[in-house]
């Protein structure tokens, strides 16, 4: 078998982990309807919640392309769930960057994996993109869809052109932190059991 090329086994691994990731995102994503600040809080909640599957996925990643395919799948699923198409290219870009960084470390270096996971987490921020770029029409859309004035004020107070920088940095940091936590958990449970 050719070592450099992706095989069916890899595609199936990607599919399984994407499914797990999406279930977690969806479960936590529903919290955003309670209060708009939670929407901004995704940058903290989601990377930490998904850190364990992500790190297990990293141990299974050995070839270039797996992370990129995962981000493409996430982009497709996000679109289907009604998140819009503006963020989709950004999701794929963050996956590609994460892939390149992990490749630089040979998919084994811990440091590169941590940074790579930080970049991969940025796909969450990509979903804020329509909120910022098309702020006016998005706001009007929400109001027309029946959201309250209060919800909108809070949402756009939390996510706007000024705060996005902070959100991206926090997201990146949480991605890195999640990688460290996830690595420890993977070590505790999976390496002992001999699954990795």
């Amino acid at each position: 078998m050719n070592d450099k090329k992706l095989g069916v086994r890899d595609f199936i691994t990607v599919g399984i982990f994407t499914a797990i990731l999406m279930v977690i995102e969806f479960a936590f994503g529903m919290l955003g309807y309670i209060h708009p600040y939670v929407v901004a809080g995704y940058v903290v909640i989601l990377p930490l919640a998904s850190c364990i599957p992500m790190m297990l996925f990293y141990t299974k990643t050995e070839k270039f392309g797996m992370l990129t395919i995962m981000s493409v799948l996430i982009a497709i699923l996000m679109f289907v769930m009604g998140m819009g198409w503006l963020g989709a290219p950004l999701i794929i870009v963050s996956g590609l960057v994460a892939d390149l960084i992990a490749k630089k470390g040979g998919y084994r270096s811990f440091k590169c994996t941590v940074i790579s996971n930080g970049f991969f987490s940025l796909w969450i921020c990509a979903n804020y993109f329509p909120v910022i770029v098309t702020a006016d029409s998005y706001r009007q859309g929400l109001l027309e869809a029946g959201y309250t004035e209060e919800y909108c004020n809070n949402l756009f107070g939390a996510i706007n052109i000024y705060t996005i920088g902070i959100l991206v940095v926090v997201c990146f940091a949480c991605g890195c932190l999640g990688a460290v936590i996830g690595k420890a958990v993977v070590k505790k449970h999976f390496e002992k059991a001999g699954i990795v």
């Binding site: 309807y33 289907v80 769930m81 009604g82 869809a145 029946g146 959201y147 004035e149 209060e150 909108c152």
Partner: peptide, 27 residues
């Protein structure tokens, strides 16, 4: 639900309706 309504109950109501109306058709 109108854009003037506020309060916790409304927030929950908006949440419920938002999820159903926005996601259910595509789901």
């Amino acid at each position: 639900i109108s854009s003037e309504s506020t309060g916790v109950l409304y927030a929950l109501l908006v949440g419920y309706c938002g999820i159903i109306v926005q996601f259910m058709p595509s789901v």
